[in-house]
């Protein structure tokens, strides 16, 4: 059987959009661009980049656009397309070797005046906290992949609740709770009554056998201190 010399695969990629807010980019535009690349080099260098033309429908000069493209590319950014281009801009972009990218949902970039903190810029997506308004029963598992998990109810023995952030349980925790599941050592677990089978934060755990029996039935919080899982009552 002959196999094809290539395979078709779907790929999603994350690109950075640079929204141009001035109709005729001048020296100050390029200076600001330099500044931005310096402060956010980790984020920008080597990343696929789009030009967002939503705010500048009047930017239709071939020379101006060409200069912008050259300037951005010369800084090491991988500019490959435009978005929100009007027909005139689209034709121009194609001429200059950029593709038109249609994006169903785009989040606005922060205003350029606000300097983005350089660290952890890749995690700017907002957290997705979860609230569960019922009991989590034996055999059930609730996961908050990106954020806090709040349970208004009890977590039964044999149930599991997992969050990348904090876990709040307004009820009895009889099952397992794992906070900071993606490695956040500052995550905490709060519950109004502790009867847990297992508590874990960022991979460090205590089982019912190692949890101080004085804490059973109490309202507590669990947190990491010096790489140790601590459980404290609320006074």
């Amino acid at each position: 059987m002959r196999t094809e010399p290539f395979q078709v695969r779907g790929r999603f990629l994350t690109a950075i959009a640079i929204r141009i807010d001035v109709e005729s980019p001048d020296e100050s535009f390029y200076a600001a661009l330099d500044e931005k690349i310096k402060t956010a080099a980790n984020l920008l260098i080597g990343a696929p980049v789009l030009l967002d033309l939503a705010a500048v429908p009047g930017l239709v000069s071939r020379d101006l656009l060409h200069n912008v493209i050259r300037a951005i590319r010369s800084k090491g950014l991988l500019l490959f397309g435009v978005q929100n281009a009007n027909p005139q801009q689209k034709a121009l972009a194609e001429e200059l070797g950029l593709i038109q990218v249609l994006i169903g949902r785009d989040t606005p970039l922060q205003q350029p005046t606000r300097a983005a903190p350089p660290r952890r810029q890749r995690l700017v997506e907002p957290p997705e906290n979860k609230i569960i308004r019922r009991h989590v029963r034996s055999g059930q598992m609730v996961v908050a992949e990106r954020g806090d998990l709040t349970i208004v109810g009890s977590v039964s023995s044999g149930a599991e609740v997992v969050a990348s952030g904090n876990i709040h349980i307004y009820g009895t925790l009889r099952g397992r709770a794992m906070a900071g599941a993606t490695g956040d050592a500052s995550a905490r677990i709060f519950c109004s009554k502790l009867e847990a089978e297992l508590l874990a934060i960022s991979g460090l755990f205590k089982t019912s056998e190692t949890i101080d029996s004085d804490l059973r039935g109490c309202n507590v919080q669990a947190f990491l201190e010096d790489e140790t899982l601590c459980i404290e009552r609320f006074v």
Binding site: R134, V136, R137, S138, G139, Q140, S156, S157, G158, A159
Partner: peptide, 13 residues
Amino acid sequence: VRDSDRVLGLLAS
């Protein structure tokens, strides 16, 4: 009781 709890979870979903 634990098995009943499991069943209650299934009844809810």
